[in-house]
């Protein structure tokens, strides 16, 4: 019985490429990973937004309205709904002149209880050192 920790570090801008969407959809896929594993084994994803990647966390995204596709906001809320650990780098948020109010910090409107964490980069660095595998998107 073991749990492997997998970090999804998102540095890419939303919508410019598919990268941040892929990070979130792959992280969310951890919910069904057990069908491939021995009983008791599991994967624990951690999603971290750093650099330009923090712009994925902006509220009120209109991707469905303008492009007819799901927004990164919806994927982020699904992640929180599924109790995934989501961390957002505070220094990078500050750098863009953003405040916590501008960001998707919870998924209460869809029934989620887990909240995203706005943390200093040092905490994200600690996560990167702790996980079994690290992936940059």
């Amino acid at each position: 019985m073991a749990t492997k920790k997998l970090a999804f570090i998102i540095r890419s801008l939303p919508y410019k490429t598919e990268a941040s969407r892929l990070a979130l959809t792959h992280a969310i896929a951890s919910q069904t990973v057990e069908i491939y594993l021995e009983e008791g084994d599991n994967i624990e994803p951690v999603v971290c937004f750093i650099g330009d990647g923090v712009l994925n966390c902006l509220k009120s995204q209109q991707a469905m309205k303008h492009y007819g596709i799901t927004s990164l906001e919806q994927h982020m809320k699904n992640s929180l709904l599924l109790d995934l650990k989501v961390m957002i780098c505070k220094e990078d948020v500050d750098r863009f002149g953003l405040k916590e109010d501008h960001l998707i910090m919870d998924a209460e409107d869809v029934g989620g209880e887990t909240k995203a964490q706005l943390v200093p980069y040092s905490e994200i660095q600690k996560v990167m050192e702790e996980v079994d595998h690290l992936q940059f998107f």
């Binding site: 997998l6 969310i28 951890s30 069904t32 491939y36």
Partner: peptide, 13 residues
């Protein structure tokens, strides 16, 4: 397969 196959593969990698 779906994306969970990839995550499962990382488990034993």
């Amino acid at each position: 397969r779906s994306m969970d196959w990839y995550l499962a593969s990382t488990f034993s990698a």
